[in-house]
């Protein structure tokens, strides 16, 4: 099962590889010309959108569109096993890409004090990983529900973008109340991570339910 999941993700791995290369180039340019400083960190906010649209949204719906679910789901493995392998590989790919980008950005960014509205906030600690998993889960859910890649891509794009917008608003609101400092900001971050992971788990289970339990077309 893992072989098929990896082979099917080959194209997407190449896509992620491209992002990795672009980020490397951007980071290299930044370290030579101070005008561009902080660019790669700013652009990082868009990465979860890419994960949702390109890693999550196609997984189940592509099979339906090409009819290959009839092949994949009638081999010697259950539909659930098929789904979990696809989900694990997609999320693993998102996490690996996040790890690389976080490291690159961290290397070129001069030392700073972390605050709620800093560009580095979404790149610090477990937060970027939680967003990666959340974005893929959003894509998976819409993919399994709509069974139509284009619709799933659009729904994931707006879903992840709206979530980011709401998250930012909530962070600022909480900051106004609690006055987070660099020392205790981890409390806010872990709360954010926990909420995102809980939502991601719920969406992934929903995607699994719609894949394994509902009649395929």
């Amino acid at each position: 099962m893992s072989w098929l999941a990896f082979r099917q993700h080959r194209g997407r791995m190449i896509g992620m590889g491209l992002i990795v290369v672009l980020w490397g180039g951007l980071a290299g340019m930044e370290s030579y010309s101070p005008v561009l400083a902080g660019m790669s960190a700013v652009f990082f906010a868009y990465v979860p959108l890419v994960f949702g649209v390109f890693l999550g949204a196609p997984v189940v719906s592509r099979e339906f569109e090409r009819g290959t679910h009839q092949f994949a789901w009638t081999q010697s493995f259950s539909r659930s096993q098929w789904f979990w392998w696809q989900a694990v590989v997609a999320m693993g790919l998102a996490l690996a890409t996040t790890a690389y980008l976080g490291t690159v950005v961290g290397l070129i960014t001069p030392s700073f004090t972390l605050t709620v509205d800093s560009v580095m906030y979404p790149l610090t600690g477990a937060v970027p990983y939680a967003w990666g998993v959340f974005a893929v889960a959003t894509g998976l859910m819409w993919s399994a529900i709509t069974r139509w890649t284009t619709a799933a891509m659009a729904a994931s794009f707006f879903g992840v973008a709206a979530s980011q917008f709401i998250a930012e608003g909530l962070r600022k609101r909480s900051d106004a109340v609690s006055q987070w400092t660099a020392e205790n900001l981890w409390i806010l971050q872990s709360a954010e991570v926990e909420i995102l992971l809980a939502l991601a788990a719920a969406m992934t289970v929903t995607a699994w339910y719609f894949t394994a339990r509902r009649n395929p077309a």
Binding site: R7, F71, Q75
Partner: peptide, 18 residues
């Protein structure tokens, strides 16, 4: 329905792994 972008050998590999 088969995976169009796979080669014939890769399809056999899918069969073997699944």
């Amino acid at each position: 329905p088969l995976y169009d972008e796979f080669t014939v050998n890769e399809m056999l590999n899918v069969g073997r792994h699944l």
